[in-house]
Design a protein around this nucleic acid. Structure first.
Lengths: 344, 344
DNA sequence: CGGCAGTGAGAAAACGCTTTCTCGCCTGCC
DNA sequence: GGCAGGCGAGAAAGCGTTTTCTCACTGCCG
């Protein structure tokens, strides 16, 4: 008797009938509107409980013009950095009663704009995480995505907060650290070409090079995962560098693993640094020197910025800039006498 | 002139006006209904493009009774296992045009039922991942969550596919492996008490113990993360065990790291095994012997089961059972002469 | 040339909810 | 005792779609 109508699910109408009131009144009660007689309210509530009535969020969303959901677009859900951001975002949003819809672009930048648009239409706001699309495209679609928060990317479009990690500064800190240990031949294991954070690292390295013209910095092709690092052993050894700046911790770990297999001692023969300070970094052997990025905090901050936008607080879209903190562990040590390029 | 109405966004009505037709016709065109005159269809399409019209998914969902979204509830988004499942699920669902809404219960089992209900109402189906709630509660809410797929949990409720990993078998395989290496004193680092997968491991260990009454198996308290393993060094050494079955790879890595700091050689002094074969497992020092769970595949399979349910294909809710595969690496080796309990 | 089948598009209802509008009734004051 | 004012609840109008229902018009055949 309880379930009726097309969908089979019980709706506001069922409660209204059971309580002997109009569905408008049921709605008022369910939303805590106090202009309703306490007796009737109690009757409605009883009916709702008895029928296990739960308002249909879709109908609610349509009427209210909001979904209590936000979207996040990431280039690769397998990347610990994005996982951490997602986690921080999800946690912070949940505390305010918002849910998170995820969209993984799988590193195909051409999909990003479509994914972002679709996600945005279903949500009250969007976090665009390190988008790989071009500046031009980003600038073009950004306004239509508002409320929007960018992570590790900036745009000229107005009213869009950007949360960026200062990868340039971080990589300089790491390089300075290595130089301070006496290393004069460094190598940088590059990241994905499209990534803005990679660009920032390159800029940082350029700044470093002009400041230390005597230091030799070899650029090596790369990627962002374990296998990249593991596969980079030969080029690294061939470079003759004694201090290696890996694109991130994953690459560093892969590299250390590969070096270990070859019997190369870290940090005795070669020092290796990572980037990000993922949780694993303090448990590698040797523990990994890296630049710590307060990544979970970033997710939380992204939510706060987005929330301000959604609530239309005039907030001036400030955004923030995060300084990585040098985390010196055991994978970096004093340079030994310069090696010759050939090895093994 | 284009944007109008309350929301400010352009809707089907704007396109209808611009094309000089009714909004019903616009809807027909947008949905590829061919009963509309090609000329008019073209005019509508042109208007839609010009206005950059994109149908509002909320209105669409209400009319269609579906959201093209599925939900997943996980106990802890920080856990690599759940991240991998999420990733596999997201990827598979995306290929069929579905999005994923995530709900993280942060290991508070009392929240799970509410989160699951809320998520389900916004979605066309739900994946409940290793729920920590009691069997009774699960059985009670399961019917109301349909279409529902369970991961690493089963229920007596009907029509609910379950995808379970045979942790019991896996832990037995690992234990057998250690015994085969000559170890006679083992220790098991337990996981979260509420976790069903932990229960399965215990059952497996019981079976193992009845088969090998001469082998000593010490049970140690635990958890599921790095720090658990790292903090378990003392109890492990005190146990006198030479073969350690860690709850999962994270715990194993934490333990190895702690043992390393104490100067205990792995596998020379103590063999350590993990569980899951997370990507990091092959890059630890030493590389980690573990039981590989095809976890990403699990996410994909979860989607296929859920899709069958959503499409009402009669599918008999088969579910699947996944056998972990023993992955023997360098963290396990021959037992050396029995040690005394005291150490360091 | 008239009626009928068929086609194609507009009107309107439905989806499930919120909210404004309106009206009836009760109270209180003159 | 009659009327103004206020309060509480029902009626109805959205929210943005889809889809059924209906009707007008075309063209064919008798």
């Amino acid at each position: 008797m309880a379930r009726k109508s097309a969908t089979g699910r019980i709706g506001i109408a069922d409660v209204a009938v059971k309580a002997g009131v109009s569905h408008a009144t049921v709605s008022r009660v369910m939303n805590g509107n106090f202009t309703v007689d306490p007796d009737i309210a109690a009757r409605v509530r009883a009916a709702a409980v008895e029928l296990k009535y739960q308002p249909n969020p879709v109908g609610r969303s349509l009427a209210l013009g909001k979904t209590d959901t936000i979207g996040i677009v990431v280039p690769d859900l397998a990347n610990p950095t994005f996982q951490a951001i997602l986690r921080g975002l999800s946690r912070a949003a949940a505390e305010d009663g918002y849910r998170v819809l995820i969209a993984d672009s799988f590193e195909v930048s051409s999909e990003e704009a479509i994914l972002a648009g679709e996600a945005r239409r279903r949500c009250d706001g969007l976090v665009l995480c390190a988008p790989r699309m071009s500046d031009a495209e980003l600038e073009e679609i950004a306004p239509s995505l508002h409320p929007l928060v960018l992570i590790n990317r900036t745009t000229a479009a107005a009213g869009i907060p950007s949360l960026v990690v200062d990868y340039g500064q971080g990589v300089q800190d790491l390089a300075e650290h290595l130089v301070g240990l006496g290393h004069t031949r460094l190598a940088f294991l590059a990241g994905p070409a499209g990534s803005a954070s990679h660009g920032l690292r390159l800029e940082g390295l350029e700044a470093f090079k002009t400041r230390h013209p005597q230091v030799d910095v070899t650029m090596l092709d790369g990627g962002s995962d374990f296998d990249t690092g593991h596969g980079a052993v030969d080029p690294v050894l061939a470079s003759g560098a004694t201090g290696i700046l890996a694109f991130n911790d994953l690459v560093a770990m892969g590299l250390m693993s590969g070096l270990h297999e070859r019997g190369v001692d870290v940090p005795g023969d070669i020092s290796v640094t990572g980037f990000d300070d993922i949780p694993f970094a303090r448990y590698t052997t040797p523990t990994l020197t890296t630049a710590a990025v307060p990544i979970a905090e970033l997710g939380g901050q992204a939510w706060r910025e987005l929330r301000a936008l959604i609530r239309k607080e005039d907030h001036d879209a400030p955004g923030s800039r995060y300084q990585p903190r040098l985390e010196i562990r055991a994978s970096s040590g004093p340079a030994k006498a310069p090696r010759t390029a050939a090895h093994g």
